[in-house]
Nucleic acid binder design. Structure first.
Lengths: 256, 256
DNA sequence: TCAATAGTGTCTCTTAGACACTATGAT
DNA sequence: ATCATAGTGTCTAAGAGACACTATTGA
């Protein structure tokens, strides 16, 4: 009677550019229809014997050919609206992965290109930019309103992300922001150790404010339960070298 | 190549017993294999044209034959571990529904019985009880450890919930607890209006403490942004009648 | 008027935020 | 020495928690 819908694993892969002090997101350019040649979040299908979590991790390796020891992946949400795909009904199980470094990318299966897009947040938008391309997480706050406009979205310009990925992106950014103060897993993109300024950079990005608006002294106090001091950095730049911290083990609601 | 797994919608349906001042959860006794005659969370399959959210709402109506105007449903998580079902690989998209009242139940399709189970929290467990039956959310904190023991769980006693439902229950209770202080949607089971004591009852249950350990004065102060005063109750019992409050509109991360 | 229930006021201790000051390194 | 960067100390105001006190009802 009711045909089972197709299932894709969608993975939002984050990293940090230490030179530019910027948050980055991995997008791929699709090789196949639907949305051929559009930029999109990386996706894959689940295999018979693996969990969705495992599929999300496999996706990381396939897209970037990376053999990192361990990286943190967590569930974001599941997207099920009938309008979210133009053709066959498809569910998206969305995950987020926080890479401890920013490796070079090579387009894998199903993609003609794969690039890091840098997060900028001018006037209360989440903007992702790479050269001439830039994509924005939707500013629509209501799920039903979003999918309504998606259904009537004429003449899909290549300037937009495929499917409902600009909605998924919004949900992801909001989630990261909401978790900043009690479980800032996004800081895992800083690798093992980081300076307070680097952490403040990431907080500022997702709170859509400037780094200077976060007082270093207060920031340190407020997160003394989350970070631990491990040493002092040796910088080659003028100024006093910063101390480096590591993220404490965070108790998670749903541990792996 | 890879066969698409089956998909079920699992719904955790909560209500509040005003007489006993207790939180209740809906469980059904399964009519069919697998886990025939076991108690379980209510489940359904998704239809071709509806979103998972809509399916979760339909499930509420089917299970309890209720035509309530509107009740709040939100996504909990998606459970995908290969071991979670004994036979065909099945994903569970889990939702939570907060009913504004506690209607009588009639077992619907796929169930031979449907009952409210009362939440009790002795010594840091989440216990759900109805007469001679009682079920406990797992106390295992790690997902991988849970599914490992599930695979080797011999001689499934009818004292246990079907499938991985004791794990889903744990994730649900933890989530509700974590959201108490900033988005206590669980209070929607109190209906339109409620007394502070009723709210404290629910908080105490999920925090696994006694009501008296939550000071009324402080509780009121701490949640003045979340509740609004609407009037005074007219009780027939001795003692000063309590004032009644309503839950303010909460901004949600992913609005409907 | 008393028991039972519930609401209010207030004191203290902790913490968040603003901001001035000190420390360290490169040139 | 001075600039650039970063870490520390401190004052104040807001908030959390403990707890005593007042208020309103039924019997």
């Amino acid at each position: 009677m009711s045909m089972s819908p197709a299932i894709t694993i969608t993975n939002l892969i984050w990293s940090f550019d230490r030179d530019l002090q910027c948050v980055n997101l991995l997008l791929v350019r699709r090789a196949n229809a639907p949305f051929e040649d559009f930029w999109a979040l990386p996706e894959t299908t689940m295999r018979e014997t693996e969990s969705a979590d495992a599929a999300a991790l496999r996706l990381v390796r396939e897209k970037i050919g990376l053999k990192l020891a361990g990286f943190h992946t967590e569930q974001l949400a599941t997207f099920t609206h009938p309008n979210r795909t133009p053709d066959q009904r498809t569910l998206s199980l969305a995950y987020m992965t926080f890479l401890p470094e920013m490796p070079p990318l090579t387009a894998g299966y199903g993609a003609v290109d794969a690039r890091w897009f840098t997060l900028h947040t001018p006037d209360h938008q989440y903007d992702f930019e790479n050269g001439k391309f830039h994509f924005t997480a939707t500013t629509i706050n209501s799920q039903s309103a979003y999918y309504q406009q998606l259904a009537t979205r004429k003449a899909k310009p290549k300037l937009a992300l495929a499917f409902d990925h600009d909605w998924i992106l919004k949900v992801a950014c909001d989630r990261i922001r909401n978790k900043l103060d009690y479980q800032p897993n996004i800081l895992l993109i800083l690798g093992d150790t980081f300076t307070l300024k680097e952490a403040r950079h990431i907080f500022a990005d997702f709170q859509q404010i400037s780094v200077d608006e976060i007082d270093n002294s207060n920031f340190k106090k407020n997160h003394r339960n989350v970070f631990s001091l491990v040493g002092t950095s040796s910088s080659k730049r003028p100024g006093r070298p910063a101390k480096v911290y590591r993220l404490n083990d965070l108790q998670t609601e749903q541990d792996n």
